[in-house]
């Protein structure tokens, strides 16, 4: 299979934040940690557009390159995950990430103090799939349940697409053809260099 990808269609995103609260809900992400957020440009002006941003699960992930303890890895499906057992909370990945995905909790609610947390593409972590241990550290593992990320599945306007890169880009391409324009698959150039968008 092709790898997993996210695509946010800025022509459609309405900044309704369903993706953000869906993520909070699914993984009981604590206050102050945002695995996903919606960014708006030209707020209140013509040309206002919103994009929902989280870890893009890059093919050549800069976070992996900089982690001093090598706790971040790529799964077979192209999802970028990390081990909270290894993470030392140094924050290098945060600096390296072009999307600002890594987050660092202040209290030891989610894993232990200071460990990095980020979007898992709803794929849990390296612990046993769907175990209580995995859930506690990384949240739910939807991919193992055969389901896609909840943020995308619940998106109000289907602006946020997730899944197999081919499926996602097909849907997007159909849309662009039907409406005659598109502002491009935002972030794809950086996250998946070489992929057609």
């Amino acid at each position: 299979m092709a790898r997993m990808k996210f695509l946010c269609d800025a022509e459609r995103c309405i900044e309704c934040n369903a993706c953000v609260t869906a993520c909070k809900n699914e993984h009981e992400v604590p206050w102050g940690i945002n695995r996903r957020r919606v960014v708006t440009i030209n707020d209140g002006k013509p040309g206002e557009r919103s994009i929902s941003v989280a870890c893009m699960h890059c093919s050549d992930a800069p976070c992996i390159a900089v982690c001093p303890v090598d706790c971040i890895y790529n799964t077979e499906e192209g999802v970028v995950l990390h081990s909270k057992d290894l993470c030392i909370g140094c924050g290098y990945c945060f600096y390296a990430c072009p999307f600002g995905a890594p987050q660092f909790p202040a209290v030891g609610n989610f894993g232990s103090r200071g460990k990095m947390d980020k979007c898992t593409f709803c794929a849990g972590g390296p612990d046993v799939d769907n175990s209580a241990e995995e859930y506690r550290k990384y949240g739910r593992n939807r991919l193992a349940e055969g389901k896609l990320p909840l943020c995308a599945e619940m998106c109000a306007t289907k602006a946020l697409l997730a899944g197999d890169g081919d499926v996602v880009s097909d849907i997007y391409r159909e849309r662009v053809v039907s409406r005659g324009f598109g502002s491009g698959a935002w972030g794809w150039g950086r996250a998946y260099p070489g992929a057609p968008s």
Partner: peptide, 14 residues
């Protein structure tokens, strides 16, 4: 099986 299910659900976003 998991992969098939994921592809199916991918289509639901259409």
């Amino acid at each position: 099986e998991q992969v098939r299910s994921l592809r199916h659900r991918g289509g639901l976003q259409r």
